[in-house]
């Protein structure tokens, strides 16, 4: 992966309403949820153990909301560079299950430029393979 993809874009391609390129993630697997549990320290068993998930009324394990947010974090790093992310704010609006494929999408809400630094306020979200939004939010990045 090369990036940041937005740095090379001229201002007029970053005006309010400009649609950002997509980042499609590989399908979520149970193995990924176990790895994310270990890496993040979130050991809530509803994410890794089907039996526990069923005792709280789920059909089976669901992904950590923070995993979807991490996808958006990667999306911002890809768009603007990992040094450029100033804010990311999301709401978790739908459940994600193993086998779901999430795509990160976004558009520009506002662009402000001062001293050659462009600060962008972005609408970002992840959606599943049925085009249902599962994580919705806003972010701010600074690109030079």
């Amino acid at each position: 992966m090369i990036g940041p993809v937005l740095a090379a874009r001229p201002d007029q391609d970053l005006d309010s309403g400009s649609v950002l390129p997509d980042l499609r993630k590989p399908p979520i697997t149970k193995m990924q949820l176990v790895k994310y549990a270990g890496a993040s320290g979130d050991y809530n068993l509803i994410h890794t153990d089907d039996e526990t998930a069923r005792t709280v009324g789920l059909d089976g394990v669901i992904a950590h909301g923070m995993l979807s947010m991490a996808f958006l974090g990667e999306y911002l790093c890809w768009l603007a560079g990992p040094e450029s992310v100033r804010r990311i704010s999301v709401r978790f609006v739908a459940m994600v299950r193993p086998g779901d494929t999430l795509t990160c999408r976004g558009r520009v809400k506002e662009r402000r430029t001062s001293n050659a630094v462009r600060r962008l306020r972005l609408e970002v979200w992840t959606e599943n393979q049925r085009a249902e939004r599962v994580t919705v939010g806003e972010a701010e990045v600074e690109i030079t």
Partner: peptide, 11 residues
């Protein structure tokens, strides 16, 4: 380890 779990490809 975190990047690996997320399959985050940010170098």
């Amino acid at each position: 380890k975190f990047a690996d779990a997320v399959q985050d490809q940010t170098s």
